[in-house]
């Protein structure tokens, strides 16, 4: 990357096509994304503030936030731990089928979520491949909040692995070596040298997985059981409100979700800035 060409800003308008490309991109993006989303916000403005507030703070809705946020947080946290281990193993060790496994990490991104949902449900239900071993232990996964966490862990996995992997690959072996030569043992080297380097990427991966999980719908509806107050996620509540012809309620919840996504995006952006500032410009 260090050999990347550095454009001279004074010359930047030498290139043609700025107006055309930006104009087209903005027009397209506005038509497909921004205007429809803006319409959502405008639509919700048709409600009074009191109506809006009582809709988005109804007990059942609050319970769904708790589940959506809680399960997304836990799922992302599980992914931070295991995603890091997976990334570490994939980068540092060589073993048979490594490249195959590496490619498969992206499966949750490529696999339609509905397929993931029915597949996970059929495995974790009481008579499924995994469920039948957990059931006797008193652990029920499918149709409980635990099932939601499992699905969200599946969904979020590639986000952590893929943000941490390049950082681990770029990690300068010399720093570790000098730490070792200065007498640091492996654990110290890990805590003092590796972790500080990887930490911003982990945080970014966590935020990405969290953001993705928050809006997830396809896989959850199959595995959650959809019990009011217990296993209803917020996107499902939007659908339920729609099916009860409650357009205003659905819109209000959608605006809350939209605001949450937007804040998360800003946060992720900040994290990435912070991460890239902390990462040294590594040269060869």
């Amino acid at each position: 990357m260090s050999q990347a060409a550095r454009p001279d800003r004074r010359k930047r308008r030498i290139l043609p096509g700025f107006g055309l490309s930006l104009g087209f991109a903005l027009l397209y993006f506005s038509l497909i994304v921004l205007i429809p989303l803006g319409g959502l916000v405008v639509k919700s403005a048709g409600m009074t503030w009191a109506q809006f507030w009582s809709t988005v703070t109804a007990p059942r809705v609050l319970a769904s936030y708790r589940l959506s946020f809680g399960a997304s947080l836990i799922g992302a946290a599980i992914n931070v731990v295991f995603g890091f281990v997976v990334a570490w193993v994939l980068v540092r060790y060589r073993f048979p089928l490594r490249r195959f496994i590496d490619a498969l990490v992206d499966l949750p991104f490529a696999l339609p979520t509905a397929v993931a949902g029915i597949s996970l449900t059929s495995m974790y239900a009481g008579n499924g491949w995994i469920g039948r071993f957990l059931e006797p232990l008193g652990i029920q996964v499918a149709f409980t909040p635990l099932g939601v966490i499992v699905a969200l862990t599946f969904i979020g996995l590639p986000f952590v692995v893929r943000t941490v992997q390049p950082v681990l690959e770029d990690l300068d072996a010399e720093i570790e070596e000098s730490a070792a030569s200065l007498g640091a043992n492996r654990r110290q080297a890990f805590v003092r040298v590796i972790l500080p380097e990887v930490w911003p990427a982990l945080a970014t991966g966590f935020a990405l997985a969290f953001a993705r999980s928050l809006g997830e719908y396809g896989s959850i509806v199959f595995i959650a059981g959809n019990m009011p107050m217990r296993t209803e996620i917020t996107p499902l509540l939007i659908v339920i409100k729609l099916e009860q012809y409650d357009y205003a309620g659905a819109t209000a919840l959608a605006v809350v979700m939209l605001a949450a996504s937007f804040i998360l995006l800003l946060l992720i952006n900040g994290l990435q800035r912070w991460a890239s500032r902390r990462r040294p410009v590594c040269g060869d």
Binding site: P235, T251, A254, L264
Partner: peptide, 10 residues
Amino acid sequence: AVSPVVSGLI
């Protein structure tokens, strides 16, 4: 970042 359900709804 937006939930797919929201994108259908709009």
